[in-house]
C-alpha cells in the first residue's frame, strides 16, 4: 500500500514538475506565440519590440495566409475601406516629381532596418520585386512587371490617382497585398512618392523610354 502511495506521489510530482516547466512550451495559442516573440527579440535603437505587435489588419491577413481561408466578405470590405481612408492625396494636387530622383529611390533598399543609420531616408526598393526598366536586369518578380508603365496606360488624372493610391496603400485595392504601404506606414515621404510616380509616368523616364 505504502509502495503504491509513493509511486503515485512520485508520478504526480514528475507530472507537476514537467507541467510547470513545459507549460509555456506546449501551448501554441496566439497569446503563446506573442509571448514567445516578445521574449525572443531585442530592441536595437528605435527598432523596438512593438514592431512585433499586429494591427487588426495584419492579424486578419496573417490568419488568412496561415489557414488558406479567404477573408470573409464583410472583413474584406472593411479592410479595403480602411486602407482607402488612410490615403492622403498630394497637398498641391501635383502627382509627379523628378523621375531621376525616383530611379534612385526605386534602387535603394535602405530604411527602417536595425542595421540602418537612424533617420536615414528610406528607399522604395521597387526593383526588389518589380521589373521597371530594360537596363536594370537585377529585378525581382514578387510583383508584376512595370516596364512601360506610363506608356501603356497614359497619364489621365484617374490613372495618376489610382497609381498614387496603390503606392500609398496597396491594400486599398488588394486586401492583404504583399506590397508595403509606402505612404500610410510612413516609409516614403510625399515628395518621394511623387518622384517614384514620375519614374512610372514621365515619357523621358527609362521605364517608358528604353
Amino acid at each position: 500500500m505504502k509502495k503504491i502511495y509513493y509511486v503515485v506521489m512520485i508520478a504526480s510530482m514528475c507530472l507537476a514538475g514537467a507541467h510547470s516547466f513545459a507549460q509555456p512550451l506546449t501551448g501554441a495559442s496566439d497569446e503563446d506565440v506573442m509571448t514567445v516573440l516578445k521574449n525572443s527579440f531585442s530592441p536595437v535603437g528605435d527598432v523596438t519590440l512593438d514592431r512585433l505587435e499586429q494591427s487588426p489588419e495584419q492579424k486578419a491577413c496573417s490568419q488568412m495566409a496561415a489557414t488558406g481561408q479567404p477573408i470573409p466578405k464583410e472583413v474584406m470590405e472593411t479592410l479595403l475601406k480602411q486602407a482607402m481612408a488612410s490615403i492622403k492625396p498630394p497637398a498641391d494636387k501635383q502627382f509627379l516629381g523628378d523621375w531621376k530622383v525616383g530611379e534612385k529611390i526605386a534602387q535603394s533598399g535602405v530604411g527602417l532596418q536595425f542595421s540602418d543609420k537612424p533617420g536615414v531616408a528610406s528607399g522604395g526598393n521597387c526593383y526588389a520585386c518589380h521589373q521597371m526598366t530594360k537596363s536594370e536586369i537585377a529585378f525581382g518578380n514578387i510583383g508584376p512587371s512595370l516596364l512601360n508603365y506610363g506608356k501603356n496606360r497614359g497619364n489621365a488624372e484617374q490613372m495618376l490617382e489610382y497609381t498614387w493610391n496603390k503606392i500609398y496603400n496597396s491594400h486599398a485595392y488588394t486586401a492583404c497585398s504583399n506590397m508595403p504601404r509606402f505612404g500610410t506606414a510612413g516609409i516614403l515621404t510625399e515628395q518621394q512618392i511623387k518622384d517614384v510616380m514620375a519614374l512610372l509616368f514621365d515619357p523621358a523616364s527609362p521605364v517608358n523610354n528604353e
Partner: peptide, 27 residues
C-alpha cells in the same frame, strides 16, 4: 504561426518572400 506573422512597418512575414513558388528578390 510565426512564419505567417505579418508585422512591422513593411507588413512582412516569412511568407511574403517564401510562400510562393518561382519568386525572386532582385536576382
Amino acid at each position: 504561426k510565426i512564419f505567417f506573422h505579418r508585422s512591422g512597418p513593411y507588413d512582412f512575414s516569412c511568407a511574403t518572400c517564401h510562400g510562393a513558388s518561382d519568386k525572386r528578390i532582385r536576382l
